[in-house]
């Protein structure tokens, strides 16, 4: 295997030295391109109080191609499907090598704060969201409490 590019080394260093509030990303010891990620549900969103686990993988031609990110924690969100896949432009066509792990995770956190049912990935959730928003938000809160509960100390 080729050595880990300097860029990935630097990004990893900065992520641990200057962490983003409410976000953590830690690489696996045996695969430095694979990160365990957690994101705090943003305040004043249905995901508030939840701790969401994600996996993030940097492909071989990163940063030319975007990182692959997926929710591991179940989440009720119109832009995130049952398998945890995320519908976010910067993870697909709007990726740019000037973005980085940090900015991508911030975008995902922002997506939690601003669900967009008009560009859905989970059709049923988006439908429910459009038909009865307050009920959908209630469901999202329930799911958060049920699946994204913080481990109690």
């Amino acid at each position: 295997m080729a050595a880990l590019p300097k860029r990935i080394v630097k990004e990893t260093e900065r992520l641990s030295k200057e962490p983003v509030p409410g976000i953590s990303a830690v690489p696996h010891d045996d695969n430095l391109r694979y990160f365990d990620v957690t994101i705090d549900g943003p305040s004043q969103s249905p995901y508030e109080g939840g701790l969401f686990r994600l996996e993030l993988f940097l492909p071989d031609d990163y940063p030319m191609t975007p990182p692959k990110v997926r929710f591991l924690t179940k989440i009720y969100h119109p832009n995130i499907d049952r398998l945890g896949r995320i519908c976010l432009d910067v993870l697909k066509s709007n990726w740019s090598p000037a973005l980085q792990i940090r900015t991508i995770l911030l975008s995902i956190q922002a997506l939690l704060g601003a669900p967009n049912p008009d560009d859905p990935l989970a059709n049923d959730v988006a439908q429910a969201w459009k038909e009865d928003q307050s009920k959908a938000i209630e469901t999202a809160k329930q799911w958060t409490a049920q699946h994204a509960a913080r481990p109690t100390a």
Partner: peptide
């Protein structure tokens, strides 16, 4: 074999 910037070597 291994990978370099997305292609095989």
């Amino acid at each position: 074999h291994g990978m370099l910037d997305g292609y095989n070597v």
